[in-house]
């Protein structure tokens, strides 16, 4: 039976083209030399082909990151589309590397490529997972830290999506505050 519907041949296009980056901390190289573009995709099928092909975050070495950003936005504060923005930041405990890290990262990716935040998805620039000895971090970056409504929509829906307990607060920090901080903590502009 060769007759099939066209849907079986056409990949499902995403709203945006996305770029997946990998950062490996090699102290003999510069920060930008350590940041590598892995691949870009713009369909559901191509996303899974890539996702299924690469290591889960929990298998990465300390100091490594994955970054998923909309095509054209570099995963760094200095990019024009990031510099006025900030991030919803989740800091995970050491135990959560085993229990939650990979699951949270996959949910984060699905939120981004599926445009889960409705109109607020336009504010999303990308997401980052940092694998660190003290505790891993996952963040969603948005383009303008003054866009309160969009940021709160993203934060509330994201927290719900990850089934974070209501009592556990997650915070949003501007990149300006993060980059200029002197101590180990950055103040939250918003929290949910």
């Amino acid at each position: 039976t060769a007759v099939t519907s066209p849907e079986q041949y056409i990949k499902h296009p995403l709203q945006h083209r996305w770029a997946l980056w990998y950062f490996k901390n090699d102290k003999s190289k510069s920060w930008t030399e350590n940041l590598r573009l892995i691949s870009k995709f713009d369909t559901v099928e191509d996303f899974w082909a890539l996702y299924n092909h690469i290591q889960q975050p929990s298998k990465l070495g300390f100091g490594c990151d994955y970054c998923l950003f909309k095509d054209g936005i570099k995963p760094m504060w200095e990019d024009d589309r990031n510099k006025l923005g900030g991030r919803w930041l989740m800091t995970l405990s050491k135990q959560q590397r085993h229990n939650d890290l990979d699951r949270y990262w996959m949910e984060t990716l699905l939120c981004l490529i599926g445009e889960s935040f409705d109109e607020a998805s336009e504010d999303v620039c990308g997401a980052v997972v940092n694998v660190r000895p003290k505790g891993d971090k996952i963040s969603i970056w948005t383009g303008n830290c003054q866009n309160r409504d969009a940021i709160m929509t993203i934060g509330q829906q994201y927290k719900e999506r990850l089934s974070i307990p209501i009592k556990t607060l997650i915070g949003y920090q501007s990149h300006d505050d993060t980059s200029s901080k002197s101590g180990s903590t950055t103040k939250n502009m918003y929290s949910v």
Partner: peptide, 20 residues
């Protein structure tokens, strides 16, 4: 309109054979 895909829809494609 915006191309939105919910979680279950996206997950449904994770282990599909690659398309042409």
């Amino acid at each position: 309109g915006k191309r939105q895909y919910d979680r279950d829809f996206l997950l449904g494609f994770q282990f599909m054979p690659a398309c042409v």
